[in-house]
């Protein structure tokens, strides 16, 4: 067993927001301690109403080297943006 505590990613739901947002990461020996550490490290100024933690190892990330194949093709597909519609005046500012 490693003597290093695993890394956890912390997500906090703010007082007024609907979604949990990634706020950072920390070390903890267990999920329970990760929640407690997250409370102490990331909610000292009343930032949150709910905390999620997940082991950083359990996150599968896209590889930076795949950036081209993954994201570049959508650059050329401007028609996917809803910018080709005439908006009636009555709708006002969108």
């Amino acid at each position: 067993m490693s003597s290093e505590w695993p890394l956890w990613e912390v997500f906090i739901r703010g007082q007024h927001g609907l979604n949990h947002r990634h706020v950072g990461s920390l070390h903890a020996p267990s999920a329970e301690m990760a929640i407690q550490n997250a409370r102490d490290v990331y909610t000292r100024r009343n930032e949150g109403v709910s905390i999620w933690v997940v082991r950083s190892n359990d996150i599968t990330a896209s590889a930076p080297s795949d950036k081209g194949p993954l994201f570049e093709p959508s650059n050329a597909k401007v028609y996917r943006h809803p910018t080709f519609f005439d908006i009636p005046d009555d709708v006002g500012h969108m």
Partner: peptide
Amino acid sequence: PTLEEDIAQAN
């Protein structure tokens, strides 16, 4: 012992 503990103890 760790940064996390340090902040928690201070709290």
